[in-house]
Measured scan of single mutants.
Amino acid sequence: VKKMAKAIMADPNKADEVYKKWADKGYTLTQMSNFLKSKTAGKYDRVYNGYVIHLD
């Protein structure tokens, strides 16, 4: 998940494709939050927020 999150950060155009894969795998927002937690607070906030919007 972190590898794909980094791919989104490097190229935001990949976001919809990645979010669809995550949704197809049934990842919940709680799971995504836990996967994307980082020592650098807020590092993956943009990715998480994008997934929230995708699921909505």
Rank of each mutant, 00 (worst) to 15 (best):
V1A: 05
V1H: 03
V1M: 06
V1D: 02
V1I: 14
K2D: 02
K2H: 05
K2F: 04
K3V: 10
M4W: 09
M4Q: 14
A5D: 03
K6M: 13
K6F: 07
K6N: 12
A7E: 13
I8N: 02
I8Y: 02
I8A: 07
M9K: 05
M9G: 02
M9I: 12
M9Q: 06
A10N: 11
A10E: 12
A10T: 09
D11L: 04
D11Q: 07
D11Y: 08
P12D: 05
N13A: 14
N13C: 14
N13Y: 11
K14I: 15
K14E: 06
K14A: 10
K14G: 06
K14Q: 10
A15P: 02
A15S: 11
D16V: 11
D16N: 12
D16C: 13
D16M: 11
D16L: 13
D16W: 11
V18R: 01
V18I: 15
Y19G: 00
K20P: 03
K21R: 12
K21M: 15
K21I: 15
W22V: 00
W22L: 01
A23V: 09
A23R: 10
D24W: 08
D24A: 14
D24R: 11
K25D: 10
K25R: 13
K25L: 15
G26V: 01
G26W: 03
G26C: 08
G26M: 04
Y27K: 00
Y27R: 00
Y27A: 00
T28N: 07
L29C: 06
L29H: 06
L29G: 05
T30E: 15
T30Y: 12
T30L: 13
T30K: 13
T30G: 11
Q31F: 07
Q31A: 08
M32D: 01
M32P: 00
M32Y: 00
S33N: 09
S33A: 15
S33Q: 14
S33W: 15
S33V: 10
N34Q: 13
N34R: 14
N34P: 00
N34D: 13
F35C: 08
F35M: 13
L36Y: 02
L36M: 01
L36E: 01
K37N: 09
K37L: 08
S38D: 12
S38Y: 08
S38E: 05
K39G: 12
K39H: 12
K39V: 09
K39A: 11
T40Y: 11
T40E: 11
A41Q: 12
A41D: 11
A41I: 12
G42N: 09
Y44F: 09
Y44W: 08
Y44Q: 01
D45L: 09
D45S: 08
D45K: 07
R46L: 14
R46K: 15
R46T: 14
R46P: 10
V47P: 01
V47E: 02
Y48R: 00
Y48P: 00
Y48H: 03
Y48Q: 03
Y48C: 06
Y48A: 02
Y48T: 03
N49P: 02
N49V: 11
G50C: 08
G50M: 08
G50F: 07
Y51N: 00
Y51P: 03
Y51A: 01
Y51C: 02
Y51L: 03
V52P: 01
I53A: 15
I53G: 08
I53T: 12
I53C: 10
I53V: 13
H54I: 05
L55Y: 04
D56P: 02
D56L: 15
